[in-house]
Each structure stands twice: as structure tokens, then as C-alpha cells.
Simulated assay, not measured.
Amino acid sequence: MKYKFCPICGRGLEEKYSWDEGGVPYCSHDDMMFFDIPKPCIMVAVIKEDEILLLKQSYIYENSKVLLTGYVGNNETAEEAVYREVKEEAGIDIKNIEYLGSDYVKDKEILMITFMAEYVSGEIQKSCEVEGMGWTKLSNALEEMKEDVIGTKVVKNALKKILENQ
């Protein structure tokens, strides 16, 4: 998010030099700097034996499936968001979440924090915000996700972790 107006008083911001940060939006009335901030979002590869949970969201990619994603809420850690989003969107329980890395999605100003997790229990109960959802063989996942650059990177990292742990 790029600040143009002060969220406290509503006045327009000016640019103020801030050492190694360079020019930063600044409110002279409230004497406060407002650093640009990305929206934190999680992406998780949920693994069930030799399968992975994939979603169909045509508004994201017309011809590709994606991993489960969601925004991190206020007063919530990224890990808590993983558990919450999987439960809300898929209705299943997971365990052993493991951080895989992060990516920045420039055009959407999103910091994508990526994880893998193990399926524990439950039947898929697709949320109304999801077009389609189901288990796909890990061996077919990359082919079904060819448009999703970050998602395919996550699946490759998850596959690498799985092979390391065997």
C-alpha cells in the first residue's frame, strides 16, 4: 500500500528523506512517516499422501489450478492464517505446517508467504468463494498449474522437502 494521505488527519503527504530508506511519505501535521507496506498473504501446499489440494479459480487463471491462498488478518500470524484459511476454504484439518519461502507480487503489492502442510482429517467442504477444489496426484500437479508461477515454485519446493524426508 502506498500512502498518499495521512491515515490520522487526512492531509496530503509530502516526501521526507529518511536515511537509508530514501524518500518516505510524511505528514508534517502529525510528524509521522508512513512506509509503504505490502499486503501479507499465505499460500499453502496441503499434502495428503501422494496428493495435493488444488483449487480452480477462473478469475485468477483461466486454464490453471492454484494452491489455497488467503490474506493474513490483523492480530494473526502467518501460521495462524494458514490453519484458518484451510479450515474456512476447504473444511479440513492440517498439521506440521512448514515455511517454504516468500515472493513479492509487484502488480498486486502482495507479500506471498508460502508453506506446506500435512492433511490430518476431514472431507473437503468447498467454501462458496472457491470455484472448484479437489485432490490431485502430486505427479500431475505441475502440469495442472502451468500458469501459476509462484504456485509451481511452492510445489517444487514441497516435492523437494518430501524427497529429503524419505
Rank of each mutant, 00 (worst) to 15 (best):
L13N: 02
P38V: 10
V154R: 03
V130W: 02
G91Q: 05
L53Q: 00
L111K: 14
A158L: 05
C41T: 12
E147D: 15
I37H: 08
E15M: 13
C128L: 11
T152Q: 15
K87H: 12
K39N: 08
N63L: 02
P38M: 08
F5G: 00
Y26Q: 05
K106E: 15
E89H: 11
V149K: 10
G151N: 01
E147C: 05
I8Q: 09
V86G: 05
N140P: 07
M116V: 05
P38F: 06
Y61D: 07
N140W: 04
G91R: 05
S127F: 01
L55N: 05
Q57V: 05
A81L: 07
D107H: 12
I162Q: 09
C128W: 10
E51M: 08
Y99R: 15
L13S: 01
G91T: 07
Q57I: 07
I60Q: 09
E62W: 05
S139H: 06
V46M: 04
S127W: 02
E21D: 14
E109P: 09
I113Q: 03
T136R: 03
K48E: 02
N75G: 13
V130H: 01
S102D: 15
Q166S: 10
E109K: 14
E109Q: 14
K160N: 13
D107S: 13
E14M: 12
I42P: 01
G101M: 13
K95A: 15
E129D: 11
V44W: 03
S127M: 02
I42T: 00
E85C: 08
S139M: 06
Y26D: 04
G12N: 12
M32G: 04
P7E: 04
E118R: 14
L111Q: 13
D148S: 08
G91P: 04
D107T: 11
M32S: 14
E89N: 11
G23T: 09
Q125I: 04
V86C: 09
I124Y: 02
K161F: 05
K48N: 10
A45F: 00
R11E: 14
N96K: 15
A90N: 10
I37L: 13
K56D: 04
V72R: 00
K137F: 00
Y26V: 05
I124H: 03
Y83M: 02
K161I: 09
L138H: 01
I47Y: 04
Y59D: 13
C9Y: 08
G122L: 12
V86E: 07
D107F: 09
S139G: 08
K2G: 11
A81H: 06
V105F: 11
K48A: 04
Q125T: 10
K146Y: 12
L100E: 04
F35R: 15
T77Q: 09
G132Y: 01
I97E: 15
I110G: 01
V155G: 03
K16P: 06
L159S: 00
K153H: 01
N63K: 12
